Simulated scan of single mutants.
Amino acid sequence: MVAWCLLAGPAQAAGVVDLDIAPQELAPALEQFSRATGMAVLVDHALSNRRQTMGVQGLFTPAQGLTVLLSGTGLAAQYARADAFTLQPVQVREVPLPPGATAGLSDSNYAATIQAVIQRNLCRSPLTRPGSFRALLQVWIGRDGVVQNSRLVSSTGDVLRDKALVNSLQNLRIDRPAPSSLRQPVTLLLLPDSSGKSMECTAGEEVFGQ
């Protein structure tokens, strides 16, 4: 049996809202969001259970704040009206391939391409440089090779690093278009050096901030 909960805060004036929601489990964060914005949310606990949010701090419209709050959760808002929404798993949006582009790779070869691009991207920052932490990530990739959504399934244990990981994946472009047969989401496991299976940054992959 699916458990649903309707959350609704006091009515708020239209416009921007000052949000201060810390990283935490998604369900209580949605309660805080509802109270702060007056938006009603119908929560399916089967979806929100054990999902983490990176939180949201600052001045936003309710819609903008909700987008930030859901970033990295693997969930998206479906609006019933301007001040009410439910949550649903993210789906890959249909996008056209660039003119003349073809995927031309098997799923296994494309998985290696994804790993190479994400590794190169993570190696650009000392905070996300692989080797010192463990994390489980999921990404949804459009046919044009652009990462459309992500989910941080397991935390690295560092809130700042978690945020940096999620932010590093936003709109990241893979080198080649995705095969139509690619199973979504793509799951990535980042392991520490002690595992013997971690991603490695090469000398040619500059790390900024050191």
Rank of each mutant, 00 (worst) to 15 (best):
C123F: 07
A40E: 12
D158S: 14
G74L: 08
R129K: 15
A103I: 02
P126A: 09
L165E: 09
T37L: 09
S180R: 14
G209W: 04
P10L: 07
R176P: 00
Q210T: 12
S180I: 12
Q138H: 09
R151C: 03
N109Y: 02
L70P: 05
R50M: 05
A14V: 07
A11F: 04
L189S: 14
G104A: 13
A14Y: 01
D162W: 11
A13P: 04
I118G: 07
L47R: 02
D44Q: 10
A13Y: 01
G209M: 08
T73D: 00
M1Y: 05
M1R: 07
P179Y: 05
E25D: 14
I114S: 03
E200D: 08
S155D: 10
G15Y: 11
P179H: 06
W4R: 13
T128Q: 06
Q210S: 09
L105C: 02
Q115W: 01
R173H: 11
T73A: 00
A29K: 01
G9C: 06
R176L: 11
L59Q: 15
L97W: 04
V186Y: 15
Q78R: 13
L169G: 10
L182I: 05
L69A: 01
P130W: 05
L190A: 08
L66M: 10
S132W: 00
R151S: 05
S195H: 11
V95H: 05
Q57M: 07
A11I: 11
A84E: 15
V153T: 02
L26Y: 00
L30W: 03
A13V: 08
G145P: 12
A76C: 02
T113L: 15
A116S: 14
V186I: 14
D83K: 11
D162Y: 12
V139M: 08
S150L: 03
Q148L: 13
G38W: 10
